[in-house]
Design a protein around this nucleic acid. Sequence first.
DNA 1: GTTTTTGCAAATGATTTGCATGGAT
DNA 2: ATCCATGCAAATCATTTGCAAAAAC
Lengths: 142, 142
Amino acid sequence: MEHMDHSTQMRDLGLRVTRGRLAVLEVLDQLPHSSAETVVAKVHEDLPDVSIQSVYNVLNDLTEQGILRRFTPPHSPALYETRVNDNHHHAICTSCGRIEDVECAVGHAPCLTPSDDHGMVIQIADVLYQGICEDCRKSGAA
Amino acid sequence: MEHMDHSTQMRDLGLRVTRGRLAVLEVLDQLPHSSAETVVAKVHEDLPDVSIQSVYNVLNDLTEQGILRRFTPPHSPALYETRVNDNHHHAICTSCGRIEDVECAVGHAPCLTPSDDHGMVIQIADVLYQGICEDCRKSGAA
DNA sequence: GTTTTTGCAAATGATTTGCATGGAT
DNA sequence: ATCCATGCAAATCATTTGCAAAAAC
């Protein structure tokens, strides 16, 4: 069962396994980089009675628990993906908005040198590359 | 004159030098990482007749021209700073929201390996570190 | 004088809040 | 049976849009 991982993931964290939560996670497995609005639309295809606010709850709660990953490009609503245990990051085309997963160029998650960490314990490092994608360059859209 | 740089900066780009634009730039020189709302409040201390919408225009236009830099932490409105020609990045405390400038750990701006650039030409790489700052750790706020 | 930028008003978009009901354990 | 999560409604926050008037070149 594909849900198994997510169910145990939540149970292990003391979260209750609900249809809404599973539905949100399935959508994000299929469509990473989705906005809350997109998730709601997709969830409603199968479960029309899941409320918008509940989806927001789920997105917030699961992000806080580390099951989801959230990032917020400029001029965009927050985007979500099911958190995977690599250190991939994102490249966004500032012209058409398309987003690609990219591997971290340095081979490991960026980190701070102790001399420059300002006393902070870093938990997440998100890299957002912004540029122009091949299609936009060719079509002169930029 | 401290404004000189900004004025010539704008003139060189064919942008008109207005009091509103200069005021926004001065605020961001003093208070980097400010939100639009903060900028409006600060600008209004001296120039109460500058409209909110105009500040948004300025922030958008100057960011587009590369004079300002915008980044958008989760759960935060967009933040702005006058763009400086280094590759510093940002560390945000997920508990109290404080933001520190940090130097890029690898010594240069992150870049993509050609084999992994998806055909995109990268113009900006923003790194956002998220963690818990020393104060929050000590006070147990997290 | 011409074009860009501003100011005003209104609308839209994204997200959060509070409280009673329903559902998972 | 208990407590967590949901649904509903309303509110709030951030930002954009359109057009006439003012300002910079």
